[in-house]
């Protein structure tokens, strides 16, 4: 089977693509060939020829769905992929909308519904928490920097300043709030979310929902080392019953379809807050594969409509330690992907 995967930017703030591909290639229930889909010429996955058979550049999400569809049609003619796994938040809207058309071409996906995707937006988190009975930190979507002026009295310092899709920075005073507001809104647009900062320990859960309320896979992880970009550089699988219960509640209540990552914060009294729902596979997914839950494989099976048993077990106390790796690349390869858009 041929699977196309995005998110090949295995850099210091990595996309999940390369880890997803490793999971797919290690799948026991099928063998597959990987097509990479890239946005920029220096995404490392493009040059990992032992993992990725061929890469095609695709247009940025901001170019719109028609541009994406046209490019996917071209790729379809060349490669006839059976499945696409998009791995960026910002491209999901287009892929969810295009899913029925892709299906007609014989390309499967397994994505959240548009309603699920919209509902879990950071902007909607307070309403989301209330609807499904999940504790979330207080937050407000703002459209001008001035609206943030009174929020510190409600939430206290520091405030978390978040972009609609990506990016989050802590601010300890109004000047910093303004600076973050301007920087993040310039890149990701409006609104900006101002969130209460919850002191505590961060946990993450990655999982897979079958779309009917059932959990197909779930692995909780605690970050052990965090880079200056806020990304985990090391983490450990843990046995946290409360986090798993919260995870099960999330999947059951929302009937989540597809992969996701929950960002949780446990405060000093042991209460969990749901900080964010990422509607896609996280970059540390290979830990899940390594502890016995090959989520990319299960995702591919669900997408193809094959019977898929839920995972019931994973190894606790396994770590992932991320590392950088310098590849030697011929200029000709860079030239190919930069001028032809294919490699």
């Amino acid at each position: 089977m041929t699977i196309a995967v995005t998110g090949l930017n295995a850099i210091d703030s990595p996309g999940p693509g390369v880890a997803v591909i490793r999971g797919l290639l290690e799948a026991e229930s099928f063998s597959c060939r990987i097509i990479g889909l890239s946005y920029e010429s220096l995404e490392p996955g493009i040059y990992m020829r032992d993992l990725v058979s061929k890469t095609y550049s695709i247009p940025y999400p901001s170019s719109g769905m028609d541009a994406l569809m046209e490019r996917l049609q071209y790729i379809h003619q060349q490669e006839k992929p059976d499945l696409i796994i998009p791995n960026f938040d910002s491209e999901l809207y287009s892929f969810i909308k295009l899913a029925p058309r892709l299906k007609k071409m014989g390309i499967h996906t397994f994505l959240p519904t548009l309603a699920q995707f919209e509902e879990r937006h950071k902007v909607n988190l307070p309403a989301f928490g209330e609807k499904y009975g999940l504790s979330v930190p207080r937050s407000k979507a703002v459209y001008t920097a001035n609206e943030t002026l009174s929020l510190d009295r409600e939430y206290g310092w520091p405030l978390v300043v978040k972009g609609k899709y990506y990016d989050a920075s802590l601010a300890y005073n109004h000047e910093q709030v303004k600076a973050h507001f301007n920087r993040i809104s310039a890149k990701w647009g409006l609104p900006i979310i101002i969130q209460e900062f919850v002191h505590g320990t961060e946990y993450n859960v990655t999982g897979l929902g079958d779309g009917e309320g059932g959990v197909v896979a779930a692995v909780p992880m605690r970050k052990q080392y965090i880079t200056d970009k806020g990304k985990a550089w090391g983490g450990i699988s843990i046995d946290d019953k409360k986090a798993l219960a919260l995870n099960a509640q999330f999947v059951r209540e929302t009937k989540w379809r597809g992969p996701y990552e929950l960002e949780l914060m446990k405060d000093k009294s042991g209460n969990y807050f749901l900080l964010e729902i990422n509607p896609r596979i996280p970059a540390w997914i290979y830990l899940a594969v390594g502890v016995g839950q090959n989520i990319p494989e299960a995702l591919a099976r669900l997408a193809m409509g094959w019977p898929t048993d839920p995972f019931t077990h994973y190894e606790v106390g396994k770590m992932f330690v991320r590392y950088s790796w310098d590849m030697i690349v011929d200029l000709a390869a860079f030239e190919q992907i930069s001028t032809k858009g294919e490699l």
Binding site: L331, F334, E335, S338, T339, K340
Partner: peptide, 17 residues
Amino acid sequence: VSENGFIFNPSSGESFS
């Protein structure tokens, strides 16, 4: 200068199109 219009300056390491 390649046929694709890809230009590489080996002394500076810059490439152009």
